[in-house]
């Protein structure tokens, strides 16, 4: 028979069996812990500043010539949470397509970053904004007015994306 015994009385040495030295060791450890520096961040006062690799709320890039988005709808197609809705329209300008409606439902968004990855124009990127609080469900659906962010604020993320991209756009 292949029976292995693993009885506490056999596993432990004499000093372990009388508990007390081990208890003293454990208590000494926790006493030492009490004087270690604290890990807590006092949130509203001390804010967390993310680096470029942070995936916060997705936003639309607004550069010098206006919004970059050409309303191809790839982000909407790839979104696993079906959070993005795009309606395209046309203008007389050289870059003729633009989204007449672009909505991200932040109640559905899972911050996966697929939209950013699939975007051919580098028009939708993840920002550093992590404070996504809404007072009602309607406020959770962000339109273009809340999504468009000047490119100057997104430099960290764009640099990160360029230094980590796997293929040329």
């Amino acid at each position: 028979m292949n029976v292995t015994e693993n009885i506490e009385s056999q596993r432990l040495s004499f000093w372990e069996k009388i508990y007390l030295p081990e208890i003293v060791k454990g208590m000494a450890l926790t006493l030492k812990q009490m004087f270690e520096p604290k890990m807590t961040r006092q949130y509203p006062e001390e804010r967390f500043e993310p680096t470029g690799s942070y995936r916060g709320r997705p936003v639309l890039v607004l550069d010098e010539s206006g919004e970059r988005c050409v309303a191809c709808g790839l982000c909407s197609r790839v979104c696993p949470a079906i959070a993005i809705e795009v309606q395209a329209a046309e203008t007389e300008r050289e870059k003729e397509r633009f989204p007449v409606k672009f909505e991200i439902n932040m109640l559905r968004c899972i911050l996966c970053g697929f939209c950013e990855e699939v975007c051919p124009e580098e028009a939708i990127v993840m920002s550093k904004d992590y404070e996504m609080v809404f007072e009602n469900r309607e406020d959770g659906i962000l339109g273009k007015d809340k999504l468009l962010v000047p490119i100057a604020q997104l430099q960290d993320r764009l640099e990160y994306l360029r230094s980590h991209q796997y293929y040329e756009h």
């Binding site: 812990q33 009490m34 604290k38 890990m39 807590t40």
Partner: peptide
Amino acid sequence: KISAWIQQRI
């Protein structure tokens, strides 16, 4: 307080 200190919290 003491539980927090032991766990390196405030």
